[in-house]
Design a protein around this nucleic acid. Sequence first.
RNA 1: GCACUCAUAGCUCAGCUGGAUAGAGCAUCGGUUUGCGGUACCGAAGGUCACAGGUUCGAAUCCUGUUGAGUGUACCA
Length: 565
Amino acid sequence: MKLKSKLNALIQDAFNQANIDQTPLSVSEATKPEFGDYQFNGAMALAKSLGKNPRAIATDIINALDFSSLIRKAEIAGPGFINLWLNPLVLADFCEEARGDARLGIALRTTPQTVVVDYSGPNMAKQMHVGHLRSTIIGDSLANLLDFLGDTVIRQNHIGDWGTQFGMLVAYLEEQQSDGDVSLKDLEVFYRDAKKRFDVDANFADKAREYVVKIQGGDTHCLGLWQQFIDRSLGHCEEVYTKLNVKLSREDVRAESFYNDDLSQVVSDLDKATLLSESKGAKCVFLENDEIPVIVQKGDGGYLYATTDLSALRFRAKNLEADRICYVVDARQSHHFKQVFKVAKNAHFVGTDVFLEHIGFGTMMDKAGKPFKTRDGGTVKLVDLLDEAVNKAHESIRNKEDYSLEALEIKAKIIGIGAVKYADLSMNRESNYIFSWEKMLSLEGNTSVYMLYAYARIQSILRKHNAKIEGKMRISDALEQHLSVTLLRFEDILQRASVDASPHQITSYLYELASLFMRFYEQNPILKEGVDEETKMSRLALADLTAKTIKQGLDILGIEVVNQL
RNA sequence: GCACUCAUAGCUCAGCUGGAUAGAGCAUCGGUUUGCGGUACCGAAGGUCACAGGUUCGAAUCCUGUUGAGUGUACCA
């Protein structure tokens, strides 16, 4: 339900009625319960241009306001705030409507866009570590969100499968295979061993270099080995995706190597567009007000990641027909993307109306506030973090004897993985954050478990009730009013989160909703004795809609839900 | 040197286009149980929103400066 839009429209009508020739500011949620449900602060802003006292303006607006439907009451407060109380009968109708709809009354976009979301992008030469968590889950929840709102979402996993290090790795793989099968279970170790071999054995090093050339030259034997290596490495990533409940599949993979054949074309097209210049032996594009050029071809003829990104941008705009392209990549690359986006536009690789966006996120820091090291020890493998979380969740489950081992496994996975994802997604993506096991694995307070618990409680009530919920919903007190307004705010929250690409707005909302339900649950008995039938049904309906909203919200975040925990 | 980002409670973080007495969680202290799931609920305590100016009816939020931190600064990705 687009509550805000409805309220804004009512205010606009009042403006027209009162002959105020202005576009009103948007209403906002009331900051305190005693200020009603929503507030409109636009009267103060108009005081100067209208040359009138803000309270007088507020009076005019209220006099012109339609009280026959959504708005029940309006009051002027302080210098000219207009506090709005919503009509509980209308709220009840809206809630019933939402409860009866699979989409909770949330409309699909009227003008959907084709959006490419580029995320995860692991390097095939390395094991995924905790640093890969953010791109993977922020990107995935953004894709889920846009998909839910009705956009055509194209997920792209731009994996790193090309470059000099693969010569060494493939040569080493071949050598190991002659001694039997290689599991490639630990890529970090494999990489280290290969590097060691490279450093001490000159013959091996020569072979590695030779293999780089052969791979890039299309040698079938070497390409076959390379393909084997990539397949297995990608297999490990997919295990992590499955654990994480991330919806990336092989079809979403469009690797660096995919763009390889197009790179020389990119450079010559830049040249045709007269954007190219040569500097210190390299082919570069210089941008206005930027001393540092975008290098697209090295002095030795090799191409760079900027070249690949330009090719990918063109592919996404022209072949995938994207209206919006989102790169969910570490904020440290903001300069790189600013440059590449500008070059792509200048060269008309993407149309002027295509919206290019770098969804940057903060760096993961250690306890001392220093950036989390990715090399030389201290690196936490992503799989290890996830396994640890699942173990910890396993211990937290009550009445273990009630479940089969398999059911316990599933529950522990949902709880543990959910906790990790929630911990990460609940933080403003743009700021750095401090990695802590304690926080990642915590099951108390503002965590996913709190939401799961609220959900499970409601499911327990519904199980106990074990019958249809019939009758009309009634909002009977301030708490129920607050809960219903909060439930109906869901769509506004999702809209906002999709514009800002910030999942943490969803987590904040869900926590607020769950905590409001907990209070409601303490104060307003549902199935207890002495509750009349009508009240019972109404409260059941409210609880049911709460559960559905929590489930939908978590689903968008890629967090699963359990009926019992 | 230049550029970008940031600085909010003891700790970890919210605070949306400027709005009323700046909010959570954790930790600390106290309360609630014949419980529809206590992994919960209620309460207390905790703040010069880094500092100094400015803009205006009104600033944690916008602007300038200072201090401190992180990041990026041409042939790695």
